[in-house]
Amino acid sequence: MSLWLDLLLIVALLWIAAGALFSRQLFRAVVLFIVFGLLLALAWARQAAADVALAEAAIGAGLTGALLLDAAGRFRRVRGGKDAGGSP
């Protein structure tokens, strides 16, 4: 039972990480990264590492996610009339 839960969590971790790394839209990638951080916090909790789980949820997912979200929004508009990233 608990082994299946761990296996499910591992598959979800890898799946969400693949989405965060290779999604075509930057905003979507950042949101998936935040989801990845929260799943990683769950993985720490499953491994009885409560301190790490707390830090991961607060700093890894929350703070890093907020920083990346701000950057994704800020860099979306490319100045000087250049294209926003290639052919549509």
Binding site: A50, D51, L54, A55, A58, I59, G62, L63, A66
Partner: peptide, 17 residues
């Protein structure tokens, strides 16, 4: 128990934000 300076600092920074 679980906790400490790093967690407290993260919560404090979150409150400031």
């Amino acid at each position: 128990r679980s906790g400490g300076a790093f967690h407290a600092a993260a919560v404090l920074a979150g409150a400031l934000v």
